[in-house]
């Protein structure tokens, strides 16, 4: 705060900030100082890191994607003044805080094994063969601390070392492949690629198949619904609208199994 700007952050008036792709700062709105790659900027205090960076003039060519917290493109690392702790977040989700020192790490080099999912066996040995560096993990837990999605990274790495692909797949389900785990790894593991292999093996070979889906596909292929579709195809617009408007709907919050439609011809 030594740079002599008025302490706008301390004003008590209600804040008005227009956000959107191009945030506009109305007069009197509060701003906070943040440091992007070491340079100080004053930004409106309700913005996300991504919006704040755009506000001060950055234009994202890489390092931004869905802007909805799921694509993993905008991983960001930051520290707060006077605090040793490293913090991690997605720029599109994390709201700026005063005196945060940040930089984006949209990509981090990580070993990615080449395999044909049709050819490999769904065993832990396949994982060990493709990613032997798995065994360089020292359980420092920096990966879990770095995960912006709250995934227990060390736990899924441990599960794989124990040979449990299913557990690793389940534990890593929320991974968005941002790579922050790999950026902090002492053993130089590409955790997120290893987890993706685990989920692929689990999804393709281990997870139980949905029997009802299999049955329904068989019914469709056997022509069970052909007549119904033909009937709908023959209808004119008026008849179709009537059918739509009079359709039966399950009431909201009905307990499972408590409701049945009157017309069960096609069930």
């Amino acid at each position: 705060m030594a740079e002599g700007r008025p302490m706008q952050a301390q004003q008590t008036q209600e804040m008005k900030v227009a956000t959107g792709d191009r945030p506009i700062l109305p007069e009197g709105a509060r701003t906070v100082p943040i440091y992007i790659m070491g340079k100080r900027y004053e930004v409106p205090e309700t913005l996300t890191i991504m919006k704040a960076m755009e506000y001060v003039g950055y234009k994202f060519v890489r390092g931004a994607g869905c802007r909805g917290g799921i694509c993993g493109a905008c991983s960001t690392v930051y520290r707060k003044a006077g605090d040793y702790k490293l913090h991690f977040g997605l720029a599109c989700q994390t709201v700026v805080e005063p005196n945060m020192y940040l930089t984006q790490i949209p990509f981090y080099p990580a070993n990615r094994a080449v395999y044909d999912i049709e050819e490999i066996e769904p065993t832990a040995d396949s994982v060990y063969e493709l990613y032997p560096e798995l065994f360089r993990c020292v359980a420092c837990n920096n990966c879990t601390k770095a995960c912006p999605m709250g995934v227990e990274v060390l736990d899924y790495i441990s599960a794989l070392k124990q040979g449990d692909i299913a557990r690793a797949a389940q534990l890593s389900f929320d991974c968005i492949q941002c790579g922050l785990c790999a950026s902090r790894c002492m053993g130089e593991l590409p955790q997120y690629h290893i987890a993706q292999l685990a989920r692929r093996l689990y999804g393709k070979y281990i997870q139980p198949r949905a029997e009802h889906l299999k049955k329904r596909v068989e019914e469709i292929l056997s022509g069970k619904y052909d007549a119904m579709l033909e009937e709908v195809q023959r209808m004119n617009r008026e008849e179709l609208e009537k059918l739509y408007e009079e359709r039966e709907r399950e009431p909201d919050l009905t307990p499972p199994g408590a409701w049945m439609p009157k017309d069960i011809r096609y069930l």
């Binding site: 993990c137 020292v138 837990n141 736990d155 790495i157 070392k161 002492m186």
Partner: peptide, 25 residues
């Protein structure tokens, strides 16, 4: 519950503590 690999071998260097973290956890 929630155990991790113990590290299998003990670190024998006086100035290397990070490799004790796994068994301690």
């Amino acid at each position: 519950p929630r155990w991790n690999c113990c590290g299998a071998v003990h670190s024998l260097a006086d100035d290397d503590l990070i490799h004790h973290v796994a068994p301690v956890r």
